[in-house]
Amino acid sequence: MPQSDDNTPAAREAAAGVPKPRSEEGSPLIRFDKVVKRYGDNTVLDHLDFSVQPGQRVSLIGPSGSGKTTILRLLMTLEHVTDGVIWVNGDPLSHEYKGTDLVKAGEQHQREVRKKIGMVFQQFNLFPNMTVRRNITESPIHTLGVSRDEADQRAAELLDMVGLKERIDAHPTQLSGGQQQRVAIARALAMRPEILLLDEVTSALDPELVAGVLDVLREIARTTDITMLSVTHEMQFAKDVSHRVLMFDKGKIVEEGPPDQIFGAPAEDRTREFLHAVLEG
């Protein structure tokens, strides 16, 4: 059933005093302009156009292989566009200007624009030979140039937020999967990104550990104005935190709208089929 008007993310945030995202008419923080991604003859993203406003939380849903994770990997420059342009905060990410010409971006340009973006992966990707402290502090020290004292203080604050302050000197092998993923979230936030990308962050966890990680992300969504782009099969999480939900299939957006519309009264048959399979299967 559709959510009541006083139980949507926007209504809950208004009551809690959380800043609203900028209007759709403002300048987008992320913009995909006719983006194509192919692997050989396989087209993963097909002339994709979409944008995300500053402060928006957008969930990408759809079947495996529909192009959702590729979007995040393109934003992190782990993959490169076949055609089209990706923009981040008004700057081209996939391209750069040479004079007045827009050409494929070099690594230095991409690295500079990518500083605005943090990502939490399906696998935790923590360095096993480093303590939790060092996993969180090394990038801010060496990439952002912050002092070790400042990085340590930030790490302690973030670990407190994710409920792991007492494990700051533990090694990843001493932590559960859920704890490692919470450390990975803290590590991404330590870089003070404008954009947080979440790629199926609970898919590698045992079922009993999922709730703890999602609760941390709900709290981040509730208490900050960070822009979030999440690929997820956790439909309740998408309902709880999203301003917009995009349904993907075969590299295209099939349907998009607020969560009460997408989950309560989807307009497209493909969306209804997918949600039935996920929620009832």
Rank of each mutant, 00 (worst) to 15 (best):
T271W: 14
T8E: 00
R57N: 12
L175D: 01
L175F: 11
A277C: 08
P54I: 04
H142D: 00
L189T: 07
K250V: 00
L164K: 07
G257M: 01
T227S: 08
I117T: 02
T100V: 06
E268S: 08
V245M: 07
K68G: 06
G17C: 09
L246I: 03
P21N: 12
V210K: 12
S139Q: 12
H233A: 11
A156D: 04
V254L: 09
S51D: 14
A156K: 14
V18R: 15
V241A: 07
L60W: 13
G212R: 05
G163F: 15
Y97L: 08
D206F: 12
P193E: 06
L48D: 03
Q56S: 11
F263V: 00
V213N: 00
F50N: 01
N125H: 15
E255M: 12
R31W: 13
T43Q: 12
D260S: 10
F124R: 00
G40A: 00
S66T: 01
A151C: 09
T131A: 05
P258M: 05
A204I: 02
P28Y: 11
V231K: 10
A156H: 12
K250L: 06
R218D: 00
E234R: 11
T232P: 13
E200C: 15
S94T: 04
F127V: 02
V132G: 04
H171K: 03
E256C: 05
V35R: 09
E79P: 10
V113K: 06
A15G: 11
P92C: 13
T100I: 06
A16Q: 07
E112P: 04
L189C: 14
M191Q: 14
L197M: 13
E255D: 04
P2S: 02
I226S: 03
A238L: 04
G55C: 06
G251H: 03
A16L: 10
S27K: 15
A267W: 08
I168A: 10
P172L: 03
H233W: 15
I61L: 04
T202S: 08
I86T: 08
I61F: 09
Q153I: 08
L279S: 04
V35C: 09
T100P: 05
E79L: 09
V18A: 07
F263L: 00
S4I: 04
D101A: 14
A188L: 08
I136T: 01
G26S: 15
R167M: 09
L175T: 02
D41Q: 12
V201N: 06
E268L: 15
T82M: 10
L159G: 01
A186T: 11
D33W: 07
T232K: 14
A190G: 06
M235T: 00
I220L: 11
V146W: 15
G257F: 04
A265Y: 06
A277Q: 10
V201T: 13
R38A: 05
D6P: 10
G40E: 00
L246E: 02
I136S: 01
G62D: 01
N129K: 07
G40H: 09
A184M: 01
S59F: 12
L198S: 03
E25A: 14
T131Y: 15
D215W: 07
A221K: 05
G264T: 00
R31G: 01
L209Q: 05
K115F: 12
R270M: 11
R22N: 02
E219I: 02
E150S: 11
H233D: 09
F237H: 11
E280H: 13
T69L: 10
V81G: 03
V162A: 08
H142R: 10
D33N: 11
E107W: 14
S147D: 04
K165H: 08
